[in-house]
Amino acid sequence: MYNNVLTSHNGGITTITINRPSKLNALNKETIQELHDAFDEANKNIKTKVIIITGSGEKAFVAGADISEFANFSIDQGGQLAAKGQELLFDFVANLSTPVIAAVNGFALGGGLELAMSAHFRIASDNAKMGLPEVSLGVIPGYGGTQRLPQLVGKGRAMEMIMTAGMVDANQALNYGLVNHVVSQEELLPLAEKLASKIMRNSSVAIGAAINSVNAAYEDGVNGFETEIKEFGSCFGTKDFKEGTTAFLEKRKADFPGK
């Protein structure tokens, strides 16, 4: 179905794999569009409760953007590239109501790290290396990197990473709070699936509301507390809330309908 993306579905988990091993899974225009379509399809599938995004092979999650595509762009074309990419993929992923786990299996550089940061949280293999090397090319991160990296690691660390164009290894990323867990390559997808299975025990409707509330804290002009109050209130009108509270009071495991 896709040229550069593989998708598989198993027991409520849709795994999206970027599959351009000869290019270290670099993001080109076609791959960004295919990723948008794959995420959109997974999010609309009522059987999908969690999405895992990873890269094929053992070397790279995504080694960056395909520079040959935009090396000759004008100012206007550059601005459009960033705007379209953010809308189509990076902001799109960040605002999905279905939880997205990035399983970073190697290099996550430039647009690759920006894609991982768009996911709701990240885990990494112990050979992973992450960075935003754009200033070494005379440009800056354009897919949300200057915004999301400081949110995750703090302003000072983000400034250092961006200005030096340097990479951090998996343990440094863990220490910075950029990733939540570091495991061996073999354990990476099993851990992602284990975390997904824990997520799937809970109300998918409530999780979507929680994602929206957390994201609201980072939006200019939006009061995150007000968003939380609104989302909290809306939960009371759901079948999941009725089932969750009833199950608790009846001392049984909840069976959420996802409505």
Rank of each mutant, 00 (worst) to 15 (best):
D240N: 08
N202T: 15
K23V: 04
A217P: 01
F107G: 04
E186V: 11
F61G: 05
I67W: 09
E58N: 07
N28S: 07
I211K: 07
E186G: 14
L96F: 13
V100D: 04
M1C: 00
G156Y: 03
R252F: 00
G145I: 04
V153C: 02
L115N: 07
F70P: 00
G11M: 06
A170V: 15
M1L: 04
A103H: 08
K59N: 06
I16A: 01
A103F: 06
E228V: 08
G208H: 13
L89I: 10
D91M: 10
A60S: 15
L113C: 03
S118C: 04
S203Q: 14
E231M: 14
F248H: 12
H181Y: 15
S8A: 06
A210V: 15
K198P: 05
I18G: 01
K29H: 10
D91V: 03
M200N: 11
L189A: 06
L178N: 06
N95E: 08
H9P: 02
E219N: 05
K155L: 08
K251R: 12
T227I: 11
E114V: 02
T164P: 10
G55N: 05
I101M: 05
G11P: 01
F70A: 00
R20F: 04
H36T: 09
G131N: 06
V104D: 03
A170P: 14
I13M: 02
F236W: 09
K242R: 09
V62I: 15
K253C: 00
V50Y: 10
E231V: 03
F248K: 12
L113E: 01
K129C: 03
G12Y: 06
E187T: 06
A94M: 05
A71C: 01
A158Q: 07
Q86R: 15
N202G: 15
A196H: 11
Q172S: 13
G12D: 02
N45G: 04
E160T: 02
E228R: 08
G233F: 07
Y176V: 00
S203H: 13
E231R: 12
K198W: 11
